[in-house]
Design a protein around this nucleic acid. Structure first.
Lengths: 188, 188
DNA sequence: GCAGCCGATGACACCAAGTGTCATCGCATA
DNA sequence: TATGCGATGACACTTGGTGTCATCGGCTGC
């Protein structure tokens, strides 16, 4: 794999995921990833801001998709309903690629630094969704609360989905969890 | 400040907070912190697992306090009510030391890595609270949801508090935000 | 009061993440 | 064919973080 093979970024992503699975995240060095991809450490850091970033490449586009859906939800939707509609799109995308999603989830779940980064990505998604809600005229606080609440349900559903490999579909699971969240809030 | 002055850990915390405020988190090296505290870099890393950890020293004790309160809440309390009771104790502690809290908040807010770590600490608090709820007989999912929901309200209230320096007290603010969250969930 | 143990610190070498800088390569286009 | 440009390599450098052994000073038992 020479210097000018195409798709350097994709090769780095693939190599990183493989090595993280084979030897663990901490035991893998960036130099090893670059070597397997036929590139150098320096080039790795031109494509990804850090060693963790290579696993979160799809986060931006996912976030954009969710945000667009929230923005375009019918005016009649409540804030939380709009958030739920956006997250259902994300859920569908994850369900489509559930093998990749599970692989990636296993790697991320096995390491504290990666879980940390995932939290950050969820936080960024929440902030973007809240901003989209404000664009719909939702108040400052209510926007943050609806976004965070919806994403809490998403995260809990995602965790359940990961624990029980193939027994459930993510979509219905998310609906269930959201209902349960509303019940918890109501009785509180 | 010689080798055997007392309270090495406290000196490191103080030096770090000062330097992070003076020059920013990234511009400060661990060697500088250690020097100001009259110690060495190696000793810094014996007291704190990494450069960020030095700002989150109180998190464990705060978490323990919250968890204890949740565990000891009256049986009649709903899950979310128990969580709220626990967080109100945290709120009271922060309100007591609000100058320190604001200083620290400014430093953390100014840096992405520190915000990241704060998210993690909130996540750990949520997990601990959820575990306490399960000890009260709350179901798996409902425990996670109630814990995350309560902490969402806490985080939003904390952010509002930080934005408007002295105009509001954190306690009432937290109650307001929690009410608003319930309303958002109910109409969703 | 002294010997010896032990926890806290220093000294030092080392690894790996991440960055700045300049050279080099190959492609596209005039 | 010349030339500009974006992507990559080469290489030195800083800094976070760790392993290891020496050293210091207090404490305990005698």
């Amino acid at each position: 794999m020479g210097r000018w093979e195409p798709n350097a970024r994709g090769r780095l992503e693939r190599a990183a995921l493989e090595l993280y699975r084979e030897h663990g995240f901490e035991q893998t060095t960036v130099a090893q990833i670059a070597e397997r991809a036929g590139l150098t450490k320096r080039t790795f850091f031109r494509h990804f801001v850090d060693k963790r970033d290579v696993l979160f490449s799809g986060a931006e586009s996912l976030s954009e998709t969710v945000v667009r859906t929230v923005r375009e939800a019918p005016d009649s939707y409540s804030p939380l309903a709009a958030v739920a509609a956006g997250l259902e799109v994300a859920v569908a995308l994850l369900q489509d690629r559930r093998e990749d999603a599970h692989d990636r989830r296993a790697v991320v779940g096995a390491n504290a630094e990666l879980r940390e980064r995932e939290l950050v990505k969820m936080g960024m998604l929440a902030a973007a969704v809240a901003e989209a809600l404000r664009g719909r005229g939702v108040g400052e606080r209510a926007a943050s609360l609806a976004a965070d609440t919806g994403i809490t349900a998403f995260r809990v559903a995602f965790e359940c989905w990961g624990r029980e490999p193939e027994t459930q579909e993510l979509g219905p699971l998310f609906c269930d969890v959201l209902k349960e969240l509303k019940a918890v809030a109501a009785e509180g």
